[in-house]
Design a protein around this nucleic acid. Sequence first.
DNA 1: AATGGGACCTGCGCGC
DNA 2: TGCGCGCAGGTCCCAT
Length: 266
Amino acid sequence: MPELPEVETIRRELVRKITNKKIVNFKITKPKLIKEPSVSEFKKGVIGERVKEVSRKAKLLTIKLKEDKFLIIHLKIAGWLLYGEEDPRARAVFYLSDGKVLNYMDSRVLGELRLCKNYKDLNFIKKLGPEALDISLSKFRELLISRKAKIKVLLLDQTLISGLGNIYAQEVLFLSKINPQRAANSLSQKETRLLHGKIVSILKEAIKHKGSSVDTYRDLGGDRGGMEKRLKVYGRKDKKCYFCKRPLKKISLGGRGNCFCPHCQK
DNA sequence: AATGGGACCTGCGCGC
DNA sequence: TGCGCGCAGGTCCCAT
């Protein structure tokens, strides 16, 4: 699921629902999800703590429990959070002092839960490039200028620019009419500016509509996002191009599926 | 150094 | 209806 807009949607709802709540108990049914410390240390470490702050770094949620204690949640592909009643499908359950629970949902069990002294120590976070929503045009231009990697692959490289995933990377290239197979350094100044603008605008639009529920993703209340209805290329292989009405094609780039319009995206 | 494939997991939709 | 296959929003690791 969760690219920047989905994680940001969850963050905003979490701020309202769990800030200042105490975690009174914790249950895990898929211990593999806990990457550090040990499962028992993790459990001991979260119980009794109060949620001080809920933040987001690219696609990760960082929940501050103490100055030196952070709960880090990476939802990976299929993770989401459900607040309210305990859910039988939950992979982990945080029991809260308001009598409600926070269910960690993840059909594919690929997500990661961590408890760390400081989230900034995490290797993955250290390596993250600037956030897609914040990166300046000149920084973005610098990124592309010396790289011959395919632009689509580059947009997904979190160490260069963070927050975009396979849905929104396809969307921004389509809206910018840039072929995903183009070498990054082949983009003109005009194309680079257009792409940069589309990255910012689509992420903002997606946040406004509470993300895309193309599959498992749901918001904190279990409701679908509204953005999937507005997507123009993602998952639309063989359907008509929004611009020219010719059929969209699907190719594989960097191991990921990619829909695009060979006619409009030059 | 860059690229491609597989691994991690489960569940869904499709075609036969 | 039942089964096997391909595929899925992310990231890491390895081989070439």
